[in-house]
C-alpha cells in the first residue's frame, strides 16, 4: 500500500493527531491546525499545500525550526486541504519522513541504528564524535531529545547493544496510543551528531 492509501486508511479509521497537529474532516475537505488551537475561531486561513512548508519553518517567535519534530510548532493558523493527497504533502512538510518511516516500520523494514554505529560511520569534522563517552551520550540525549523542549519523536535505538538510553523517562521510548500517528526516530539525527561534536570538543557544557 502506498503512502497516500495508508494515510487515507488511517483517516478513515478516525486517525486525527500527528505530533502537535490536529486533523478534522470538514465539508470542503480536511483541516489541519495546531492541537493547542482547538476551539479558536481567530485562526489565519491557509489553503495551499505549499503553505505547510512555510508554516513549519518558523516558530511563534519567527525563529527557524531546524528540527521539525521539535515541540515548537507555531500557532494561529488553519490549513484547509481538498483531499488526502494534499494532506499527505502537507504532513510531509510539517513532519518530514514521519509518514514514510512509520509505514516502513509496519512493513518490518526499519532497523534501528544504535548511536555508536551512527557515530562510527561519521567522517570529516564529525569523526571526532566517536570519542563521545557513554556518560556524555546519556547527558546529551537527555538534553537534546527530551519531549518537553527537545523533540517529539519516539526513540527506537540504543546507545549500544548492551546500553539503552536511560537518561529519559519511559514515555520517550513508547509510541503514543489513541490512534495517534507516531513520530519515530530510528537513528540519531545530524542535529544530535553535531551537538555530540560540540560536547567532545568542549564547546558546550555537558548535561
Amino acid at each position: 500500500m502506498d503512502t497516500n492509501a495508508a494515510l487515507a486508511n488511517w483517516l478513515e479509521k478516525g486517525g486525527r493527531h500527528i505530533g502537535q497537529i490536529a486533523i478534522a474532516k470538514k465539508d470542503d475537505g480536511w483541516e489541519l491546525r495546531h492541537a493547542d488551537d482547538a476551539g479558536r475561531d481567530d485562526l489565519q486561513l491557509y489553503t495551499k499545500t505549499a503553505d505547510a512548508r512555510s508554516l513549519a519553518n518558523l516558530d511563534d517567535a519567527s525563529a527557524y525550526r531546524a528540527l521539525k519534530t521539535a515541540p515548537n510548532l507555531r500557532h494561529g493558523w488553519r490549513l484547509i486541504l481538498p483531499d488526502v493527497a494534499s494532506v499527505r504533502n502537507a504532513l510531509d512538510a510539517f513532519y518530514p519522513a514521519m509518514l514514510g518511516v512509520h509505514l516502513a516500520r509496519e512493513r518490518g523494514e526499519i532497523v534501528p541504528v544504535n548511536l555508536r554505529d551512527t557515530l562510527a560511520r561519521q567522517t570529516g569534522m564529525y569523526r571526532i564524535t566517536q570519542k563521545l563517552t557513554d556518560a556524555q551520550s546519556q547527558a546529551l540525549i537527555a538534553k537534546s531529545c527530551r519531549l518537553d523542549g527537545g523533540c517529539l519523536k519516539t526513540i527506537l535505538w540504543r546507545i549500544s547493544p548492551e546500553l539503552p538510553v536511560n537518561s529519559l523517562p519511559a514515555e520517550k521510548f513508547t509510541t503514543p496510543g489513541g490512534g495517534e500517528w507516531p513520530l519515530l526516530c530510528h537513528e540519531a539525527c545530524n542535529i544530535l551528531v553535531a551537538e555530540a561534536r560540540k560536547v567532545v570538543k568542549g564547546e558546550v557544557k555537558e548535561g
Binding site: A66, P96, A97, L99, G100, L103, A104, E109, H186
Partner: peptide, 16 residues
C-alpha cells in the same frame, strides 16, 4: 538533506 529532514537516512523509507 544532510542537515535537515527528511534526512538521507530517512528518505528511502518514504519512496514507494
Amino acid at each position: 538533506f544532510w542537515k535537515e529532514e527528511p534526512s538521507l537516512r530517512q528518505v528511502l523509507h518514504c519512496v514507494n
